[in-house]
Write a protein that binds this DNA or RNA. Sequence first.
DNA 1: GTGACCTGTTTGTCCGACAATCATACGATC
DNA 2: GATCGTATGATTGTCGGACAAACAGGTCAC
Lengths: 254, 254
Amino acid sequence: MSVEFAPLVMEPAYRKVAVTIGARILSRALREGERLPSETELARQFAVNRSTVREALRELESRGLVQRRAGSKLMSVSRPQHEDVAEGVSNALLLHDVTVRDVWEALSILEPPLARAAARARTAPDLKCVSAAAAVFSAERNDSEQAVHRVAEFFRCLGRATHNPVLGLAQEPLLQLLEPSLRVMIDKIPQAPGRIVTAQRRLLEALEARDGEAAHAWMTRHIRDFSRGYELAGIKLEMRVTSRPTALKTRARA
Amino acid sequence: MSVEFAPLVMEPAYRKVAVTIGARILSRALREGERLPSETELARQFAVNRSTVREALRELESRGLVQRRAGSKLMSVSRPQHEDVAEGVSNALLLHDVTVRDVWEALSILEPPLARAAARARTAPDLKCVSAAAAVFSAERNDSEQAVHRVAEFFRCLGRATHNPVLGLAQEPLLQLLEPSLRVMIDKIPQAPGRIVTAQRRLLEALEARDGEAAHAWMTRHIRDFSRGYELAGIKLEMRVTSRPTALKTRARA
DNA sequence: GTGACCTGTTTGTCCGACAATCATACGATC
DNA sequence: GATCGTATGATTGTCGGACAAACAGGTCAC
């Protein structure tokens, strides 16, 4: 017998309520889209005050497990959207002093195999998505504000084309963290958009041909180009990634 | 001028409060460890009711941006811990019908380059961490409940050894999702622990020698072994990953 | 069919209250 | 001097009740 005692954890009621509801959702006893009872009703069922229920709902809401549908008052169960989840990851990484090099290294590891997987698994609609994203970037290449979003959109389509949610979600935080430095690069390096357009076209061709290796190769070059761009733009790789201005933004409800 | 109007977003007060405090933290105006004012004081400053402040705090708390230190009442600013963030990601993926194959594919993409990076960037303490984790797994290899945790711990040490927070955080959700199927595998395949011990030893040797390519190669085999293990254990790759029983658990405060 | 009007429900926010816990200081005891 | 007990004030967790605004649904006139 040990003389040591484990510190005993006192769980506040609002947390227990959140965990209980959350477990129901994760176990799929509550299905997506299903409406939650009203706050008053939940308070009655859990035998706690409505304020306590509300604190629990805020927690579930911020995890994306529940959501208010547009124009509705009742909360409904929802699957966390990629961007919401990724925002949490991005924020965590920002506070952990992530450098541009760290993000770039992760991209250079993840993206080429992701492109290969996309080339192999892509369907016709995926192709359309990728090609549309490439076209829009090409059109808006000079507005750096828009351009970075289009680049991210291109990658996102690629991620979807893998039909592997893990890969799609894994790259999302990287895209978010990439934005600020990419914007600077596009602003400072006149030839950057052109090189991106080329890479996107080659990648699209590889996807059309279902040529995984070509996609891998072109993505490798594409990512390596980024690091060259950083150099030319005078962005130090050891620089900390800066917070996006839109961080912790309000989620738009569709 | 367009005739269309954008749907106007009404932001509740609790959300504005959360966003405001969150932005302060992300911009590092509030530094880690710093104490937040009391709820009453925050309510006074924002000119809202304490209940409103509390709802905002629940949101920040669930994002890991604030935390109550053990045995303290006042909230203090904190950096989100990897495991907390990863839990959100895991839950999101669970609800997005992720299959064993999806997780395995992501592991096979991420882990070999991660091992290579670890072999190149590792320091002496990292080595100790990895070697300790390997030793503990070897000792507890027969208790499948413990064993899966030790496997995850081994990977975590590897992730830390890369000195790239992005990589460490990227693999965390994978480790969490891997657990259930890995437990089944260890239970059903007698020779599985032995193969894992071997792989871990080889990886450790590669790290000691700073041999990135060897680490990459051995990790590739290690991950491929998993898929063979799944086959032997009769785990269908198309099976949905099941929820961990500890999901949404209370965070233990150190 | 359209619009006006009413009614009950639900949320967002507020106010006030109280017990339990924590921080701190001050003695009392050994 | 170190440990313990106690008093005091601050803070949190939870509660009860309250009310305006927004929404859902029905009814009714036109």
